[in-house]
Structures are given as C-alpha cells and as structure tokens.
C-alpha cells in the first residue's frame, strides 16, 4: 500500500516505568498512514513496553502519544481500541477456554455492527483458512502457529486503523514464520497500517517500510528498512551477518 505521509501515530519523548524501573526512556517515533513500521531490538530493549504504552495498558509517566493528532496518554485501553488501535499481544494471550470463533468475536467487542462483524469473521477466515477449520475448537488446544493466527485475526476484528503486532514469529517453525509475514504484508495491502515488533529482524525488515532499532529503552537508530538492512551495525548486532 502506498503511504501518503500524514503521521497516524506519533510518540514524543515517551517514558514508561514498571514501578521504579524505567523501561523506556524517551522514545520518539512516527508511523505514517499505510506504512509497516518495525521496532527491532534485543530482549529488554523496550519494544513490548512501547506497544503497551500505546495501547494504554501501561501509562507513560512522561511524553505524548498522538493518534490522528490527538493525545491518547491516560485513556483506558478500551477507548484506545475504539479510536482504532488494536493489538496482537506478546505471548498471544488468547482466551484459552473460548473457541476460535468466540475469541474472534471478543476482538470485535467494541463494535455494534453485527453484519460488519460477521463480514470480518469471514475476512479473517479468508486470511487464515486454518482458523475456519478450527472455528469451534478451544483456543487453548490450538498449535502455536494457529494461536498466532487467531491472535492476529482477533486483533483485526476490531477493524483497526493501526494494528500492533508483538512478536508474531515467536516460537514458530521457519515455514510458518514466512507465512505469517506474508499475511502481514497482505493485511497491510488491504489498508491497515502496522507497527510490528520483532526479534526476527531479518524478516521484519523485509516486510517493513521503515524501522527503528531500540536499545535499552531508547531509539538507537532509525532509517528506511532497506537502509537498515545494509547498515553495518544492524547487520552485526541483529541480522547475524558480517
């Protein structure tokens, strides 16, 4: 999808703490409409915390988070979902005792348009035919890959303007990882802006337009995805290449 330059999401000097520990120390970033932006970095760099801050699950102590130009810091998560941000969280966090279909319906919790929700269920089943086969199976009994698909489908059910994906490739077999990233591209081409957190930097930079490299809670580097891929430092530290 082509990007048209208006920033959909803007973080300005965001600081978030867990208790007294400062997990992110002044992050600024931008996601423009239509982009796939990736946050890469090692464990503990603050990637997930950034997503949780955007979603309102952890409230930043300082800084502004602008969505469509409006500051959303301090809004509870359900309002942020309604504004158009939804998330496939780290570790997937499905409702294990609900069926696949019920999980998807939970994703549409804020929506009242039944027919639209029904359409979107079909759309998700179109993206992930595996889920359609397992629609009445308990989510807790799905395989890792299926769970990831279910989590992404559930997030899509909110019909978000901005989709936050937290480590969609975690714990998956390489062939599935490729499939997941294909789907990320497909979702984006259907018109959803994506902010993608990944440890698998190689794959992430493949699908992304731009990237941010996080190190210990700050943005160490940012550039176009192609430029980052050929950056010496990134190649050494995150791509395992020389």
């Amino acid at each position: 999808m082509s990007t048209n330059g208006t920033p959909l999401l803007e973080l300005e000097d965001v600081h978030t703490y867990y208790g007294t520990i400062e997990a992110i120390k002044g992050i600024s970033l931008q996601v423009r409409e239509g982009e796939v932006v990736t946050l890469i970095g090692a464990n503990g760099a603050g990637k997930s915390t950034t997503l949780r801050s955007i979603q309102g699950i952890n409230r930043p102590k300082r800084g502004r988070i602008l969505f469509n130009g409006k500051d959303i810091v301090g809004h509870p998560p359900h309002e942020i979902v309604r504004l158009g941000i939804s998330q496939s969280p780290e570790g997937r966090r499905l409702f294990p005792r609900m069926t696949v279909l019920e999980n998807l319906e939970m994703g549409a919790f804020q929506r009242r348009d039944r027919s639209g929700v029904h359409q979107d269920v079909e759309r998700v089943f179109g993206l992930f035919p595996r889920l359609a086969e397992r629609r009445s199976q308990k989510a807790g009994t799905l395989s890792g890959g299926e769970q990831q698909m279910c989590a992404m489908g559930r997030a899509l059910m909110a019909r978000p303007k901005l989709l936050l994906l937290d480590e969609p490739s975690m714990g998956l077999a390489p062939v599935l990882v490729e499939r997941i990233f294909e789907i990320v591209t497909e979702i984006n081409s259907q018109g959803t802006t994506i902010l993608l957190v990944e440890q698998n930097a190689l794959m992430a930079l493949d699908v992304a337009t731009r990237g941010y490299v996080l190190e210990t809670g700050v943005v160490a580097l940012t550039d176009d995805a192609t430029a980052l891929r050929s950056n010496e430092r990134v190649r050494k530290a995150y791509l395992g290449l020389t």
Partner: peptide, 17 residues
C-alpha cells in the same frame, strides 16, 4: 468470562475493566 480468563487481554480487546 474474558476478564476471568485473562484480564489484560480482555482490556486490550476493548472490554472496559
């Protein structure tokens, strides 16, 4: 039920806790 199963996930799905 969503809150009982996973409070954080429920919040992220738009359930006002």
């Amino acid at each position: 039920i969503a809150i009982r199963e996973d409070e954080i996930a429920a919040a992220a799905m738009g359930v006002p806790l």
